[in-house]
């Protein structure tokens, strides 16, 4: 097991690295602005049901997915807008799905919690806590079986670690040496419950010992650390077909879902504000400015460009049709 990874001090990053950093900044901003728009649309009643936002956690999806090949698999919980966008589903198709429109990535049938794009290796949005952890291992089982050298990253929250399926799956993934990365986004709370109130072992990485699995504890507010740790895990999966458990410490700025309070009995407003001071986007933007890669004007231009992209996605979703009534009865079984 490796100790907490730290950002290596970089002197004069290479052009490729600079390009990657700029891409990551762009991607994090896309998620942030997309989610802000989703919150607005929810308040206007254009999005219904449960809608779980990713604001604060952007560095996790962006850093992890930067380490993947296009044909690798990603599978997530219901808090998956960010991963879906970065796996290549267009903002239009994700927003349209949140609006329940026919042009959405699940034809308007899945909604916020069930984004899918099988062609891009985005294997969903799953609503039952922990229920998709075995599915992630199953995808890896299939890749290994077929010899495709694809890697699967399975994202889940820290509260899912208390579900039996987590433990059953880690054991099998280790016994069968499956090319899967269990990426636990530890944002400290499952709804209104602080993890330490309901977990005997609060350092999730330690669970890897029980299953003889490689593991790393990662700072999830730093996209570069997430990227580096995931790269090591991907290499382990692709080259040796070994699973890894990553515990990525992060924080959600919003309430559990759009219908839950931002703070209250379970966490204080001060805590939320304190965490916001570690903002992953400001962190990377600050670094790039410091390195002279980007100046404020360029940053503002990037921001404006992404705002426009997200506005366009809202317009696309607004203008899109509802599914045909007959769609109610399709997709129950294939012929």
């Amino acid at each position: 097991m490796t100790a907490t990874a730290r950002t290596p001090r970089q002197s004069a990053p290479s052009p490729q690295l600079t390009e990657l950093h700029l891409k990551m900044l762009r991607q994090m901003l896309l998620i942030r602005h997309f989610e802000e728009k989703a919150a607005e649309a929810y308040a206007l009643g254009k999005i219904g049901g449960f809608c779980h936002l990713y604001i604060g956690q952007e560095a996790v999806a962006v850093g992890a997915l930067a380490a993947l090949r296009d044909d690798d698999y990603v599978i997530c919980s219901y808090r998956e807008h960010g991963q879906a966008l970065i796996k290549g589903i267009s903002a239009n198709a994700v927003m349209a799905e949140l609006f329940g429109k026919a042009t959405g990535c699940s034809k308007g049938k899945g909604g916020s919690m069930h984004l899918f794009d099988a062609k891009r290796g985005f294997m969903g949005g799953h609503g039952i806590v922990g229920g998709h952890i075995p599915l992630g291992a199953g995808l890896a089982f299939a890749s290994k079986y077929k010899g495709t050298e694809q890697v699967t990253v399975c994202f889940f929250g820290e509260a899912a670690v208390n579900i039996g399926a987590f433990h059953e799956t880690l054991n099998m993934a280790s016994v069968w040496k499956l090319p899967v990365i269990f990426l636990c986004e530890n944002n400290r709370y499952g709804m209104g419950t602080a993890f330490e109130r309901v977990a005997a072992v609060t350092d999730i990485v330690e669970h890897a010992c029980s299953y003889d699995m490689a593991a790393e504890l990662v700072d999830g507010m730093n996209v570069l650390t997430v990227y580096d740790a995931t790269r090591r895990a991907v290499e382990r999966a692709r080259k040796q077909s070994h699973p890894t458990l990553l515990e990525v410490r992060t924080y959600r700025y919003m309430g559990h879902s759009m219908s839950d309070p931002l703070h209250g009995v379970y966490r204080t407003k001060d805590e939320v504000e304190e965490q916001k001071a570690r903002d992953p986007i400001s962190h990377l933007a600050g670094k790039l400015k410091e390195d002279g890669v980007i100046d404020q004007a360029a940053l503002d231009a990037l921001d404006a460009e992404i705002h426009a992209e997200v506005e366009a996605a809202v317009k696309f979703a607004d203008d899109s049709p509802d599914p045909e009534p007959g769609e109610l009865f399709t997709d129950v079984l294939v012929d």
Binding site: G48, G49, G100, K101, S106, G108, K109, G110, G111, S112, H114, D322, P323, P325, E327, L328, F329, V332
Partner: peptide, 16 residues
């Protein structure tokens, strides 16, 4: 309920 999993879209849900 219609003999299908519940869809997300509001109109389909109402129809179901």
């Amino acid at each position: 309920q219609a003999d299908v999993p519940m869809p997300y879209n509001k109109l389909l849900e109402r129809a179901a």
